[in-house]
Write a protein that binds this DNA or RNA. Structure first.
Lengths: 167, 167
DNA sequence: ACTTTATGTCAGTATTGTTGACATTCCAAG
DNA sequence: CTTGGAATGTCAACAATACTGACATAAAGT
């Protein structure tokens, strides 16, 4: 009697893909791929006075327009002092606009100006070029697997926080 | 007449998985997954006087015992001054041994001491726990996809440099 | 009125990266 | 054997990004 369902979860057998060797390979892949992943924007940012932290802020402000400072802090996982330095520069330079909240006037809602959108575009274009090539060469099935594994690697707490990004 | 080979490359159609939305999702997945990926070792390292840079050095010295400083520099992609600070601490603290090369006496071959191996083990154990869970829950097919996409994201130049790690 | 929340800011410090300069050691080519 | 260059180590200065702790302000909630 055989198990007819070979696509769903493992029932004790065929766990050979979980060897320490395979896990080690996965760990190093994460390291080297992330290095490649960040290299294009990093190169572009050298032409400005900005760094990776500015990129992240600009990215998520673009992603969720009107996001509050606290929301952004939760997503980035840094202290308000660290974010504030970056945010102040972006506001001073006219890339980000900080508006007092309408419902809760303590909050600040963050928006990209046109200048901010331009930088975001330049950075994300570069990042998409690499990602698109990687996706295309690997194929749609591989991309599904890529997504499944990476989703599982995210902290459960963080997963809750970033749910709003998908909707 | 249908295309019998559905697993190989795309022939012009079905590229819907390359939409900007999907690419954006991939970009954010990389960000959040990498954060999770590094969180366990980072937490452990707080109990020591070491940081992520020490972890990386210890990892690759363990991975390729007797590696030269120059080789390690190529893999890590940092300057010798940056690596040297980390390396000196590890040597001073008795986690890494630096032996003069036998063929070329200018080179230094790096080895982990027992103390170094202990730390490496503690860090990689934690990292493997997360990776194993992510792999297991996603399944072997997904892991193949994960690997394919991440391989494609690595800089071609870096890919050459790290070939030696697989053999 | 009092407390809590959201935000901003100042000061100090740690980690990790960078350049530039210089010294030492040692292989290799002339 | 001398010279050139490669590999390594070290010093100093600096930059980006993170942290903690403390304090201030304004507005919301009780």
């Amino acid at each position: 009697m055989q198990d007819g369902n070979v696509t769903s979860g493992n029932h004790g057998e065929d766990l050979l893909f979980l060897t320490d060797d395979n896990l080690l390979q996965g760990i190093e892949l994460m390291f080297f791929a992330y290095k490649g992943f960040t290299s294009d924007p990093d190169r572009i940012l050298q032409n400005y006075t900005y760094g990776r932290a500015h990129h992240r802020a600009v990215h998520f402000i673009n992603r969720k327009r009107g996001i509050t400072v606290n929301n952004l802090l939760d997503i980035l996982g840094v202290t308000k002092q660290s974010l504030n330095r970056v945010l102040r520069q972006l506001v001073d330079d006219g890339l980000v606009e900080s508006r007092v909240g309408t419902n809760d006037r303590r909050q600040r809602n963050l928006y990209l100006t046109q200048k901010g959108k331009d930088l975001e575009q330049e950075l994300s274009d570069a990042q998409r070029v690499r990602m698109r090539a990687a996706f295309r060469d690997a194929g749609p099935d591989a991309v599904r697997g890529f997504r499944a594994v990476l989703e599982n690697m995210i902290d459960p707490e963080m997963r809750k926080r970033v749910q709003g990004l998908k909707g």
